[in-house]
Nucleic acid binder design. Structure first.
Length: 779
DNA sequence: CGCTCAAATCTTTTT
DNA sequence: GATTTGAGCG
């Protein structure tokens, strides 16, 4: 490779890039050129001639990151990077299983269940087992099963702790059998199958260990237990050169099993003697970095690192406290417009929020003002009902035994196959252990006849689409299934019809993008002669139809929900979705206790620290400008709620903030003093607001010391009259309760008889009280 | 059997 | 607020 690529690296980056064949752990701060290091490292390795493109595996966490890496590498390398093993954990597992489907015990045309398919499948099992859905909530059970899978535990490995759990293990076993019967795998199963295959097949293991001389892992802090174990099979300690890049401060997926501890484990198990830290930030101005450093220093459990920048201090952070979410949205809009007028492209401005539900107000403000915007996340394209219906038909063409798809469309559009008929069919299927499709002939009479007609419909579709292009197949199925007709006759079906049209377009462009010809071809084959998944010793030349590939694409990448590319639009997304991205200007909205930090997150062990890391991620997305805002009242879940300022605001350096709304108060006015008193007198000082029970779990040790001072600041500003609740109470007000003593109002919601208040009592923790019942005296 | 309307429920983040 | 479930009617 040409050496100019190396010339632009700083000493730490250069050291990381040119490391030899040894395992390495790179602690890469936000904006420290992490992706650049990863890609340059790959290019460097290849240029050294020690390893070919087939000998490198690079794993990322998101599709976005994988694509980014591929694009950058393509610009650096003289050959097609498509054939290289660069992808997400799940994407690579899928590739692996397509190559080794036989050894993995899967049918060749196996399909992937997305999150909602998985819940639906689990729900069917629960129903079939006659279990109470109240006690066995499908979503929760699905989550538990996924959790077990991430522990590499099959049903036989789980030791149930009680009767309830014993039943769930039974559901797990049944669910597994069902998936196997139907030829489908869920996300966790993709990982687990590959793990087991590698673990139990020495020849296969040896082959891949020899093949992948270099394994690079991005966002290592987000790996879960199974992913780490998986990694160790491909590149064991002492054997493979694993290049792990991560940032413990940006670990924001613990809620779904990510273990930051993997970084420590890696350091130990791979005997890393020298951890490389990338602390030079190339992204943000001084004030922004100061804020980030200051905030994250409040976390206890860190590997420790401080970002620095050569850029100037830049503008201070602009902070605005709005009376309502509506006002907040209007402020964002006005500030964004002024930035835009100042010469900033709209696409360089991001509006971030903690949860998707918060986008609505902002969207409507932008919409009414006629400002173009683009929302990421939320309900995505392939998750829409009409799209899932169409996909279900397509999946049946590939695999008639896919019961999930069968059930989804057997009576949609309505064709007189009701719940009773389906039930009978399920009974018949269960009795013989066959799929629903296979059991159709078991039913006689009217029901059997209508089912038979459905079978004929699918078979007709299959005959008619044989040998057709992907576009033609999709088009034909949308029409032939009756979906198009159904939505045409539905007065609200116009949008859904448009989406179905978009699906046809997507199918067409998928073929061009993925390089598929008109006929079924092998997976994209590159000039290196190594198609993805088609390893030399595997079933070379295995064929995957364009349709199968398209279906996989649909379930593995849910796709963006709006594809109005080209237009310069404001970027709206959750903070999670913003990870890995950067913008000139960032608006961070909804900085309210309960929202951010999220009250539900505070229930979890390490919840607060994870929320703080999330805040850290949000701050470090900004290059030049950062705007922070909150609303005193907010429409949430259909009712108005009142919140106090997020504690995170009090954890930012005062000198980097510029308050646009009056940051009045200071200490001395009534309720703050009372609040401080109530706090001081309370026994459980280590209690975290909204999560009193954590004290017990914490057992006194390991928790960050309470910071009452910060808290007093957080609630220091008096709430203007505007935000007064109709009960006469205000957020931040001190009250007295006969049983719980003195407390401070944190949140108010509901009206009249439904009015409730979340109140922080020193000794008793935070409690929700119904105002119509609880006797509260303002003090 | 299927459709419509009302009620109940759940709302953090996602490969 | 939005989506899913349930009751009642055609």
């Amino acid at each position: 490779m040409n050496s100019t690529l190396l010339q632009h690296l700083n000493p730490e980056q250069l050291a990381a890039v040119t490391l030899g064949d040894e395992p390495a752990l790179i602690l890469a701060g936000a904006g420290s050129g992490k992706t650049r290091v990863l890609t340059t490292r790959i290019a460097w390795l290849l240029s050294q001639g020690q390893v070919g493109p087939g000998g490198v595996m690079a794993v990322t966490f998101t599709n976005k990151a994988a694509k980014e890496m591929q694009t950058r590498l393509a610009a650096m390398l003289p050959y097609n990077v498509r054939g290289m093993w660069i992808g997400t954990f799940h994407g690579l597992c899928h590739r692996f299983l397509r190559a080794h489907w036989k050894a993995a015990g899967l049918p060749q045309g196996f399909q992937i269940l997305d999150a909602s398919d998985t819940v639906a499948a689990v729900k069917r099992v629960i129903k079939a087992m006659n279990l109470d859905e109240e006690r066995f909530v499908p979503k929760a059970v699905a989550h538990t099963i996924a959790h077990w899978k991430e522990e590499a535990a099959r049903p036989k490995d789980v030791i149930p702790r009680d009767e309830q759990e014993r039943k769930i293990v039974e559901v797990y076993a049944q669910y597994e059998a069902q998936c196997q019967r139907e030829g489908v795998v869920d996300f966790a199963e993709l990982m687990l199958r590959v793990y087991e295959l590698m673990r139990d097949d020495p020849a296969l293991r040896q082959h891949y260990q020899q093949r992948f001389r270099h394994v690079l892992v991005d966002e290592f802090q987000d790996t879960n237990k199974l992913q780490y174990a998986w990694l160790k099979l491909f590149a064991p300690p002492g054997g493979g050169a694993v290049f792990a890049v991560g940032d413990d401060d940006q670990s924001i997926y613990a809620f779904r099993g990510a273990q930051v501890g993997n970084m420590h484990a890696f350091e130990r198990e791979y005997r890393i003697n020298q951890l490389i830290k990338l602390e030079q930030n190339y992204r943000s101005c001084g004030h922004i970095l100061d804020a980030a450093n200051h905030l994250i220093s409040h976390n206890e459990r860190r590997l420790g690192k401080t970002l620095r920048t050569d850029q100037g201090q830049g503008e201070p952070l602009r902070v605005f406290e709005a009376p309502s979410d509506f006002d907040e949205a209007r402020w964002v809009l006005e500030e964004a417009q002024s930035l835009h007028r100042g010469g900033l492209a709209r696409s360089e401005i991001a509006v971030l929020y903690r949860s998707n539900a918060q986008s609505r107000v902002i969207e409507s403000a932008l919409f009414n003002a006629g400002i173009p915007y683009r929302v990421y996340g939320g309900l995505r394209f392939f998750e829409r009902a009409e799209i899932k219906h169409a996909l279900a038909y397509l999946r049946l063409l590939e695999n008639v035994n896919d019961d999930t798809s069968f059930l989804r469309v057997v009576n949609f559009p309505a064709r007189a196959i009701g719940a009773r008929t389906v039930e009978q069919l399920q009974d018949a299927a269960k009795a013989t252990g066959r799929s629903l499709w296979q059991s159709v002939s078991a039913l006689q009479g009217r029901a059997g006849a209508s089912l038979q007609k459905f079978v004929e419909l699918i078979e007709g579709l299959r005959r008619a689409t044989e040998g057709q292009t992907l576009r033609a197949i999709v088009e034909h199925v949308v029409e032939g299934s009756g979906l198009a007709a159904h939505y045409r006759s539905d007065k609200d079906g116009a949008e859904r019809l448009e989406n179905l049209d978009e699906l046809i377009t997507a199918a067409e462009s998928f073929v061009t993008q993925e390089g598929f010809g008109k006929d079924a071809v092998a997976l994209p084959v590159d000039e290196l002669g190594q198609g993805p998944g088609l390893t030399p010793d595997a079933d070379t030349g295995e064929i995957m139809s364009p349709l199968a590939a398209f279906l996989t694409h649909a379930s593995l990448e849910a796709g963006d929900n709006q594809a109005q590319a080209g237009q310069d639009a404001l970027q709206l997304m959750t903070i999670h979705a913003a990870k890995g991205l950067e913008f000139d200007a960032v608006f961070l909205t909804g900085l309210e206790e309960g929202l951010f930090p999220n009250e539900r997150a505070l229930q979890d062990f390490d919840g607060l620290e994870e929320e703080r890391r999330l805040m850290y991620v949000a701050i470090t997305r900004a290059r030049k400008r950062l705007h922070l805002s909150l609303a005193q009242s907010r429409m949430l879940h259909g009712q108005t709620r009142y919140h106090v300022r997020s504690r995170f605001l009090a954890e930012l350096p005062e000198e980097s903030l510029k308050w646009l709304s009056p940051k009045q108060g200071g200490f001395g006015s009534g309720f703050e003093r009372d609040y401080a008193n109530a706090w001081q007198r309370g026994a459980g000082l280590s209690g975290v607001v909204g999560a009193g029970h954590r004290e017990a779990r914490a057992g006194g040790g390991g928790w960050p010391a309470p910071k009452p001072a910060a808290w007093q600041q957080a609630v220091a500003a008096p709430v203007p009259k505007k935000a007064e609740h109709d009960s006469g109470l205000r957020v931040g007000q001190a009250v007295f309760h006969n049983k719980f003593g003195e407390g401070v109002v944190l949140t108010l919601e509901g009206t009249g008889p439904d009015a409730r208040a979340h109140i922080q009592f020193g000794r008793h923790g935070a409690k929700w009280l119904a105002l119509s019942v609880a006797k509260l005296t303002p003090i």
